[in-house]
């Protein structure tokens, strides 16, 4: 009797075990399915709508067939360039402070926590904040203020890059062995020189990885640009004017009623995702092969 119940129990335990294994495999398949669906559909729809005009022309008036997103591609380039100019130096500077000067201090902990807070701020809130900081004020102190401008969009994206760049830089610098720093200082190199051309240089693959990750993240951001860069159907690279961006144009076209604009939206999405996947795979390649592992 007790032997029977023992057998039953162990059968049951074995069954539960297999059931859980099946469920876990099922969960994995369910997670991978939308990814495959999104990529498959994106490539299928996007590739058929890409042509030379897509890269060379600006949007046609609504309802007309044809045209392209040249202005959005240029606009994204301008915005991301400005964002990198703001976000990368500040982020790397903050990371150097955390890893080299502030290790273990209260200030460093506070900076780290604030960077995490900044990382969690919803992108739409960032858009609102930059709107009320730059777009809605008329002040001679703030450049390009008082109207929608490419500058305000670039600032919004740049701020969103800071936390990622800062935290990866810190982690990468902490991985550089102490002996390397000591060797540099022992040769009589001034501290700043040792940080810049010894520590930072040793950690550079990882730091570049962090910058690429931040870049890939803001490249697809739409929400902070809605009330700052606004969008522009004409070609513009002027920081003082509203400017277009790929994700912004995709959003506008996705909710428009015209079939040809849907086609352009898919094309734009493919270009955007190609850019991002390229950045992410490059990051993965560098981190899996480089001296410094552990990024991302």
């Amino acid at each position: 009797m007790s032997a029977d119940s023992y057998k039953l129990r162990s059968r049951l335990r074995g069954l539960t075990d297999s059931l859980v294994t099946v469920l876990a495999i099922l969960a994995t398949l369910v997670v991978v399915a939308p990814l495959a669906a999104i990529f498959g559909y994106l490539i299928y729809k996007g590739a058929s709508s890409l042509n030379l005009a897509f890269f060379m022309q600006i949007p046609r008036p609504e309802g007309e067939v044809g045209g392209g997103m040249a202005n959005a591609i240029v606009g994204s380039g301008v915005l991301l360039g400005l964002a990198s100019l703001i976000g990368i130096p500040l982020g790397i500077g903050g990371g150097i402070f955390l890893a080299e000067f502030g290790r273990g201090t209260k200030l460093a902990n506070a900076v780290r926590f604030t960077a995490d807070v900044l990382n969690g701020v919803p992108s739409i809130v960032m858009g609102l904040a930059i709107y009320s900081l730059i777009v809605s004020v008329h002040s001679p102190l703030i450049p390009f203020s008082g109207h929608f401008s490419a500058f305000s969009g670039g600032v919004a994206l740049g701020i969103m890059m800071i936390p990622t760049v800062c935290r990866t830089t810190e982690e990468m610098l902490l991985m550089v062995p102490k002996a390397v720093r000591e060797a540099a200082l022992g040769l009589g190199v001034p501290n700043w020189r040792s940080v810049v051309s010894i520590t930072l240089k040793t950690a550079s693959p990882g730091v570049i990885t962090g910058c690429m990750l931040a870049f890939a993240r803001v490249a697809g951001e739409t929400a902070p640009l809605l009330f700052t860069a606004l969008g522009n159907v004409y070609m513009s690279a002027n920081l003082n004017d509203p400017i277009d961006a790929l994700p912004l144009r995709i959003y506008v076209y996705a909710i428009s009623p015209y079939d040809d604009q849907h086609r352009l939206a898919w094309g734009g999405a493919l270009v955007l995702i190609a850019l991002i996947v390229l950045a992410v795979s490059l990051v993965r390649y560098v981190t899996s092969r480089g001296v410094l592992k552990g990024a991302s």
């Binding site: 729809k45 993240r217 739409t222």
Partner: peptide
Amino acid sequence: ELLAAIPSVIYGLWAVF
């Protein structure tokens, strides 16, 4: 990880269509 890297607006585009 790639799933995390896809921009929100592309999820939206896919969801709509």
